[in-house]
């Protein structure tokens, strides 16, 4: 028993490194899926890594209007992403830092990161980036309650407030889980600035949300921003996979991690498919989409409390 627990925590540490190493690959998979849908060959799976390595070797240019906030934001963002990665369980392996109530910590670590991105965007003094910041804040203010209601549902089902215990305690198939997963998927797309909310490819000013906030970054800072975004994709994805993929308690830890990784790949494929078949919705419709996700989550909560 002792050795098993040690093995589990060893896997938690391994998950951290796996997350560090494989998070950009997920972005590569999404891009490749979109390329295949569009009939192109697409960039190599490892393109995000090449981009980041290239960016890390370059020098950064800072505008004279910016202050230390602008320089601090990418580092804070990366730290937040790492902290979030440490909380999320993967497969049967619990999160490295799991404690009672860590779901609130999880949500606000992501919130802190967003806060820094936003004030850094305001710090540049560009009206354009301010507009993006305003949109980001508006949408995340609506996405966050959905995330919380979804997590509250899972907490009600399992009677636990720690992400690792919640996910380990779930047993499938439950109707609530399907609803929560759908709601969380919408949050996932919104938080990662994916297509129904924001087009990661666009450089057309009026439509951009996330991209516009990081326009002034260059070199290693931009690399950090991109890498933290990839980690965020991984972290939120791991949460959804943890909730939706049923895993047997008795399964060896490495096997469960393998399943979870397969789940992540499927999620990346699904994201690519959604991006290929859907158009970005109008900005005015975004709150409606998030409200629909909220409706699903609240439904699930009502179900779970019956």
């Amino acid at each position: 028993m002792e050795t098993e627990i040690i093995a589990m925590y060893a896997f938690s540490i391994i998950h951290m490194f796996v997350g560090f190493a494989l998070a950009p690959l997920m972005i590569g998979i999404v891009n490749r899926t979109k390329a295949v849908f569009a009939g192109r060959t697409g960039q190599p799976f490892l393109q995000p890594y090449y981009d980041m390595v290239k960016l890390l070797r370059k020098g950064a240019v800072y505008s004279r209007t910016t202050s230390w906030i602008f320089r601090a934001a990418p580092v804070v963002g990366l730290a937040c992403a790492v902290a979030a990665l440490a909380i999320v369980p993967f497969g049967n392996a619990p999160g490295l830092l799991s404690f009672e109530g860590d779901l609130v910590f999880f949500a606000y670590v992501l919130g802190l990161w967003r806060f820094f991105l936003v004030i850094a965007a305001l710090d540049t003094g560009s009206a354009f980036e301010g507009m993006g910041a305003s949109r980001e804040v508006q949408f995340s203010a609506m996405a966050e309650p959905v995330l919380f209601v979804g997590l509250a549902t899972v907490a009600t089902l399992t009677g636990s407030l720690s992400l690792s215990d919640m996910i380990a305690g779930l047993s499938l198939p439950l109707a609530e889980i399907v609803l929560v997963a759908a709601a969380l998927f919408v949050v996932f797309l919104c938080e990662n600035a994916r297509i129904p909310f924001d087009d990661p490819n666009t450089h057309l000013e009026l439509t951009m949300i996330h991209e516009v906030m990081v326009l002034d970054y260059s070199g290693p800072d931009l690399g950090f921003v991109l890498y933290s975004a990839a980690l965020k994709f991984w972290v939120l994805g791991a949460l959804i996979i943890g909730i939706t993929v049923p895993l047997d308690e008795g399964l060896p830890v490495w096997a469960s991690c393998g399943y979870a990784f397969l789940g992540m790949v499927m999620l990346a494929l699904l994201t690519g498919i959604v991006e290929s078949v859907m158009a970005r919705v109008r900005l005015l419709r975004v709150p409606q989409l998030l409200a629909a996700a909220g409706a699903l989550a609240i439904c699930a909560l009502i179900f779970s409390m019956r």
């Binding site: 409606q288 409200a291 629909a292 409706a295 609240i298 439904c299």
Partner: peptide
Amino acid sequence: LSSLVVSL
């Protein structure tokens, strides 16, 4: 939006 709230 209000309709969705009403639905809940």
